[in-house]
């Protein structure tokens, strides 16, 4: 039943995504939104991975912008400077990020709560400094420009709409993978760790193994997103992968609804559109309005945006009960 339902969700979601650019072709105002939606897709990828780690396994990470950045820089440096095939670089980026996540994760994931937050935060700052300082490779704070685009078997993804379909198919694939993981043994193990690590290990769950597993998985997904980002924007700089991006990702999954992968995607839609498009109308008061929106959602929608339908339903049901009573 649960599997069927998520299949239905996925189909509807995929359908809407497919229709959006077609709609945008008719309504010229939406045309620019396709461009924004590409970035939404890229951030959704990172957010889905992070949601698996935080919402399901209960481990906080403030370092995911760095895995995002590692993917982007591996792709960017190797394609721009050595002319290697981008597909190979995406794979290489996944290996590098996964490897780094494994090395960092092994000692870090023994830490709890704020200590884990600090360890990942420190990692994030260190990586940003390395991006900034190794100017010979990364171009330093000015960034790395002229990163080549990507093509599928000779078919160049050279327009916004083409890239849109490419990115969102990757998102749907990753989403499908993660939904499957959640409904499998691994997902149950992760939830048990979130509930209580002690109880989980008492019933025979290898806590350390599963924590590392999901940490590495989310880092690899973030790395793919980073590569897609680099090949789309054709430019990367350290500021796109610093601590503030990590915090932005955190805000995405929490405002979206931390206990649901759909929430992560909703959060990515909300925050990306807010910060890249809608808040522009507030001029310099943008930062203030952004802060206020974050506060309002945390206060009035503790379950995140994803909980709106449920909240509406329970409100309707509540009033019906009263009438009957």
């Amino acid at each position: 039943m649960a599997k069927n339902r998520s299949a239905v969700h996925l189909t509807i979601f995929g359908g809407c995504l497919f229709l959006f650019p077609l709609l945008a072709r008719w309504i010229s105002f939406l045309e620019h939104y396709v461009d924004v939606m590409v970035f939404v897709g890229i951030y959704s990828l990172v957010a889905v991975g992070l949601c698996l780690l935080m919402g399901y396994a209960g481990q906080i990470s403030l370092g995911h912008a760095s895995f995002f950045g590692l993917g982007a820089y591996v792709s960017g440096i190797i394609t721009a400077k050595y002319g290697v095939n981008p597909w190979f670089c995406i794979l290489l980026g996944m290996v590098v990020s996964g490897g780094v996540a494994f090395i960092i994760g092994a000692p870090s994931l023994r830490l709890r709560g704020h200590y884990l937050a600090m360890a990942t935060l420190a990692f994030c700052i260190i990586i940003t400094i390395i991006f900034n300082e190794s100017i010979a490779f990364t171009g330093g704070p000015d960034g790395l420009a002229f990163i080549p685009g990507i093509s599928i078997m000779g078919y160049a993804l050279d327009s916004v709409v083409k890239y849109y379909f490419f990115v969102w198919s990757v998102v749907l694939m990753v989403l499908l993978l993660c939904l499957n993981i959640i409904q499998s043994r691994v997902g149950r193990a992760l939830r048990s760790i979130h509930g209580s690590e002690l109880a989980a290990s008492a019933v025979g769950v290898n806590v350390a193994k599963y924590k590392i597993y999901v940490f590495v998985l989310s880092a690899v997904v973030a790395s793919v997103a980073g590569s897609l980002y680099a090949h789309y924007l054709n430019f990367i700089n350290p500021a796109s992968f610093d601590l503030f991006v990590s915090i932005k990702l955190l805000i995405m999954i929490i405002l979206g609804g931390i206990y649901s992968l759909w929430g992560a995607i909703l959060g990515a839609v909300l925050i990306t559109f807010l910060s890249y498009e809608w808040l522009h109308y507030f001029g310099e008061a943008e930062v203030m309005v952004y802060g206020a929106i974050v506060l309002i959602i945390v206060i009035f929608l503790p379950g995140g945006v994803v909980s709106i339908p449920e909240k509406v339903r329970s409100l309707c049901r509540g009033s019906k009960l009263k009438v009957e009573g």
Binding site: G143, F235, A239, S240, Y276
Partner: peptide, 9 residues
């Protein structure tokens, strides 16, 4: 805002 994504958009 000094952000490359925002600038490109």
């Amino acid at each position: 805002e000094g952000d490359s994504t925002k600038c490109a958009l």
